[in-house]
Amino acid sequence: MFPRLRRKLALAEEAPPKLAVQVDKLWIRYGKFQAVRGISLAIPPGEVFGFIGPNGAGKSSTIRVLATLQSKFDGYVAVNGLDVKARPDLVREQIGYVPDFFGVYEDLTAREYLHFFAAAYRLPYHKRASVVDDVLQLTDLTHKIDSSVDALSRGMKQRLSLARVLLHDPAVLLLDEPASGLDPRARIEMRELLKALKEMGKTIVISSHILHELAQLCTQIGIIEAGQIVAQGSVAEIYKHLGLMRIVHVQLANDPPGLLEHLQSLPGVTHVEETADRWSIRFEEGELEIEDLHAAFVSQGGRVRMFQPEVMDMETAFMKLTEGTTQ
């Protein structure tokens, strides 16, 4: 019974899972200027992909293509298996796009603004009120529902923009510099919100200049320069690829004899610096695990008051991979 359906189901089981975002040899030209030169990306569902690059590298152009805003480009671009060129209308149902500016109507209240976009996303009328309540709750803006958008702070406006793109529950979020211009508190709130979205299983493509935040949030990083991808992979893979050093800061309550020599003799340790209140140990992560370093301190009789591995130095990776060239 239903042989055709069975065959389809069997094929679906055998087929590899669809990529949330697939970009294959993307070229974007503005006249003679080549903004993007043959980049390829493959982002599985549920990933948080960080797009890093200097100004003018082609990040926003790539995101605009994914958001179906760029009609002229070469190459294959698909969102959830849907070709952006062939089915832009269906792609728009799958994406939520937050540009690098707020994009809000300041003559509307937050409620009107969200209802406006609920209508634009063609949400059934009877569901709109509850969906608006839900997204406002998620973005912690419920108390501002009847406030004029004009009266909201920058951070709130940005969260309202995020609330907007969540209205139709898209599978893929395209965030172009969502934290730019925000104060530290608003940035932290934004980061927490993105973490919550990541836990909800959304695929997020995010470009940002705040590199250490990307390192904390992203499962994959793509570094783009002059329209080309110069490195791509997980944060650890990129560090490994570059052979970057790891730094751990340690504060001890005592000063065991011979500790310094012991640390210097550990494999992978390249430099131990003793300052007034702490030790800074620089080592290659591939040769020495952080846990083993801690064990070395304890085994030499060190009473550890503070053991703080430095956050992966994304800025260093970025500087090492890029040459500061813009087109």
Partner: peptide, 14 residues
């Protein structure tokens, strides 16, 4: 000027 054009164009409206 309000920077809302891109936002509108990325919605499924024809």
């Amino acid at each position: 000027a309000r920077q809302t054009l891109d936002v509108l164009l990325s919605t499924p409206m024809m």
